[in-house]
């Protein structure tokens, strides 16, 4: 080199990398937490949906499946231990998911302190997500609470026998309780939208596919969302319209 320049100063990488909080509390870090927990929830939801379809096999089969969940792994594992491992994992995932969602939503509100006076409809690739993710999430939370009171604890369900899952499902969606079915379907729509965006969004957050694969992930997301919504919806519809009894 012809120029002879000596002393060089630059920021130390260590200094540069010092985040206000650790990397996992950064926007992207939280987003990764949300994505991983979301994916766990998706897996649960898919399994749950598949399980629900046992309704169509009749009372015995359905209740056996429910009992099976409790006795899974016995005698190697104590009674209900598998179920509790699943539940704890699920609760942890849900809490992580909700916590990260709340923190990020608050940060997003701070990031846009003054609203625009004029707004056009969203035009982005996942434009529906703008309106549906957060509102949908509230619907889902309400639904989950109801769902637990109804089918898990049976507080609001006429069938109190914990072992009669089949009966509880039939009771809750019986034709005269049609508003429950409507609410259930509404929550499903919210869930569908949540998944349609959530699944590809999680993949984008975790693995950052290229443009081609991003398109494919979006298609897969939509397909999964449709299958999940259909799979869940078919049960209450079948009960309400008395195709199962």
């Amino acid at each position: 080199m012809s120029t002879d320049l000596q002393t060089r100063t630059a920021a130390q990488p260590g200094e540069r990398a010092r985040a206000p909080q650790g990397p996992w509390r950064s926007n992207i870090g939280l987003k990764i937490i949300m994505a991983v927990s979301g994916i766990l929830l998706v897996l649960f939801i898919i399994a749950h949906m598949a399980g629900n379809l046992h309704v169509f096999e009749g009372r015995e089969e359905m209740n056996a499946y429910a009992a099976g969940l409790r006795s899974f792994g016995e005698p190697l594992l104590p009674h209900e231990s598998f179920l509790w491992i699943m539940r704890i994992g699920l609760i942890a995932a849900a809490l992580a998911h909700i916590w990260s969602a709340v923190v990020l939503t608050r940060r997003a509100m701070v990031a846009r302190p003054v609203r625009y006076a004029s707004r056009k409809p969203a035009r982005g690739e996942s434009r529906h997500a703008v309106a549906t993710m957060r509102w949908g999430a509230i619907v889902i939370v309400l639904f989950v609470v109801w769902h637990l009171l109804d089918l898990t604890w049976r507080t609001v369900n006429p069938v109190k026998d914990i072992h009669d899952a089949y009966g509880a499902v039939l009771a809750t969606f019986s034709p005269e309780r049609w508003p429950v079915t409507v609410f259930y379907l509404l929550a499903l729509v919210a869930l569908g939208f949540h998944l349609r965006h959530g699944i590809w969004s999680a993949v984008q957050t975790i693995s950052g596919p290229n443009t081609k694969w991003r398109g494919r992930t979006q298609a897969i997301s939509l397909a999964v969302a449709v299958v999940v919504v259909a799979g869940f919806a078919i049960v209450p519809l079948a009960v309400t319209f008395e195709l199962v009894s």
Binding site: A17, A19, P20, N27, K31, L104, A111, G124, H197
Partner: peptide, 21 residues
């Protein structure tokens, strides 16, 4: 790591992959 920290510190929000940007 450095850029993300500076981004957050400046008060930008997180991404929700809506694609508006």
């Amino acid at each position: 790591l450095g850029m993300v920290a500076a981004h957050d510190e400046a008060g930008f929000g997180g991404c929700t992959n809506t694609g508006e940007c």
